[in-house]
Amino acid sequence: MSRQPPGAVEALSRERHALCVAVALLLCLTWSSGCAFVRGQVGEEFNEQDVQAIQKGVTTRAEVAARLGAPDEIVQAAGREIFHYRRYDSKLGYLLVISRLNIKSDNLFVFFDRNGVVDEVVFGKRTDRLEFQVWPFGD
């Protein structure tokens, strides 16, 4: 019988272990649905310069529409007309059998007085805090 050099048995064991891990990973990839990272957006990103250019008591309804385009929605509240512009951004993380889709919205509300002049501007941006996440459980 030939004798193995010192350490040969351990090396063989390590190789066998690595081979088992490789086979297991290959089977996982073969049988599972893989992974994906997908992004989707609805609407164009707000240009902050355009928003800052809207001045209370100065800018008119026509000027707002010329700069930002037609609003997504026009509503009435507290005796004022409101232009509502909105945008959505989403990020999907998908790994094997779990996934998480996060959606956030940006909203711009421009309030007009009875003369059609800007009375208030409310702008909020949430999409800059949007993250790719995969784990669906918990908060």
């Binding site: 891990v21 297991a24 990973l25 089977l27 996982c28 049988w31 599972s32 094997l96 059998v97 779990i98 996934s99 998480r100 889709l101 996060n102 959606i103 956030k104 919205s105 949430r126 805090r129 669906p136 459980f137 908060d139």
Partner: peptide, 21 residues
């Protein structure tokens, strides 16, 4: 690893979150 993946592969968990609570 193989057993865990096999056990879980028939399951799917999905979450869609709109904005923050």
């Amino acid at each position: 690893v193989l057993v865990v993946v096999l056990a879980c592969s028939g399951c799917e968990a999905r979450r869609v979150a709109f904005n923050d609570p």
